Simulated scan of single mutants.
Amino acid sequence: MKVAVNAQVLEWALDRSLRRESLEQKFPKLSGWRDGDALPTFRQLHNFAKAAAVPFGYLLLQAPPVEQLPIANFRTVSGESGSGFSPELIDTIQAMQRRQVWMREYLIAEGHDRLPFVGSDRIDTDPVMIARNIRGVLGIDENWAANQPNWSNALSALIRLVELAGIMVMSNGIVENNTHRKLDPQEFRGFVLVDDYAPLVFLNGADGKAARMFTLAHELAHIWIGVSAAFDLRELQPADNENERACNRIAAEFLVPSVVLAEVWPQVHGRDNPFQLLAKRFKVSEIVAARRLLDMGFIARAEFMKFYRAWQDQEQRLAKKAGDDGGGDFYANQNIRIGNRFGDLLTRSVQAGTTLYTDAWRLTGLKKNTFQEYAQKIFGRSV
């Protein structure tokens, strides 16, 4: 069966995919489809839609659709909101929205109350006060990180505390479980979906692990001021937006309190690797420590940029070598992608019979047997 397709729609699909050259090589008859010299079969068009990560129905339209992200997309370099986004970002946000909708409905049905801290602060409130409010909800003080053996343990501990507070945290470097669809940290480091019952934080797992601590803190700030967004945070610098600037100040104060940094900096200034010493003290990445020094006027921008470029090159090499959290236990990695809080309540609901198996498989991206193994190995539940 042949299918007529609009040439402008095909062009739109190619541009949207950000993989024009590879798609043209994979579908050599594509130029004929666009010129009207040939028509694709239903199967060929379906295969093209899958390869281009475009909903099949879009290809049957008479004009290109106008797509918009469901949340603001703040880019540091361009300063544009909601433009030039990839299908990987769109699909990931939509997948997380489906999880959030399920979680919100589940919590309401179970009689849970709204989370009082969501949207509890204003962007013009002193960042020191908001950072203190966040620590209060999480049950930690300004020196909480000093008690952690390293930044990796500190990040894991912080995620556990964030989830205990009622916030879902998920991290993935690909679209669900599709290893052919990688997420680009140059496009976004993370995003946050604010909700008064089920706020959700997503960390780009393709980003350097050390950078995720700042992303998480930035997303927590968004929850406290009540604004959803996606962001790239180039050079750990926010986009030219009032909310983004406020969230960056809050995140920096949360991770590296200004009072403590002012006390510690004279002790390490002039020593070898001062950024590394500060990173160990506050359990953040060296780039976060350097950025905080720049913002507080302790180092010049030229010094920061020199260090940033060297750090970025090193992070990219490490990311290519390590891949997307591919090592370690498969089900533990799945729990990072799915989120411990979400996975816990979802498997609990499936076991109780209040959520269908098919819905659980759709929400997690896991097949039947894999989902059952995940529930058993991570939560000790037979579903």
Rank of each mutant, 00 (worst) to 15 (best):
R341Q: 08
R19N: 04
I123K: 07
S349T: 14
D37M: 08
I287E: 03
M103F: 07
T41Q: 08
I299P: 14
Q351G: 15
L107S: 08
S228W: 06
G173Q: 01
F85E: 03
R292W: 08
S285I: 05
L59N: 03
D313A: 15
G205M: 02
L255V: 10
V201H: 07
H222Q: 06
S86G: 03
A53N: 02
H222F: 02
Q237N: 11
E235D: 11
N177R: 10
K306C: 05
A53C: 10
H46F: 11
P127I: 03
R362E: 06
L363V: 00
A230C: 07
A198Q: 05
M103T: 14
A360M: 04
A217I: 06
A95P: 00
V162F: 13
Q372N: 12
F330W: 10
Y374C: 02
R362D: 05
E235I: 00
P65F: 05
A300Y: 13
R16C: 01
E80Q: 14
E24H: 10
D184V: 02
A279M: 07
L363M: 02
P149N: 15
I225V: 14
R281M: 08
V284I: 14
Y357Q: 11
Q94T: 06
N143W: 09
R19Q: 10
Q376F: 12
T355A: 04
Q62L: 12
A157I: 15
L345P: 14
A217F: 14
A51V: 01
K2L: 09
F202T: 00
P127Q: 02
T354P: 00
V288D: 03
A229D: 09
D37N: 11
R249A: 15
K29P: 05
L45K: 07
V288Y: 07
W144T: 01
P70H: 04
G327Q: 08
F275V: 07
F275E: 04
P127D: 07
F282S: 11
L193S: 07
R291S: 11
E80C: 12
T215V: 15
A49I: 00
P127T: 04
Q94D: 00
P40H: 01
A322E: 15
A49C: 02
I71R: 01
E303Y: 03
F342M: 03
G208C: 10
I250M: 08
I159V: 13
T354A: 02
K26Q: 14
V101Y: 01
R99D: 01
T41M: 08
E110I: 00
A262W: 11
A246D: 09
L216Y: 06
R16I: 01
N248Y: 03
A322C: 03
L115A: 12
L363K: 01
P266K: 15
F42E: 10
L233D: 01
K280N: 15
R309M: 11
N6C: 06
Q94V: 05
A262P: 15
F282C: 08
R291H: 13
W361R: 15
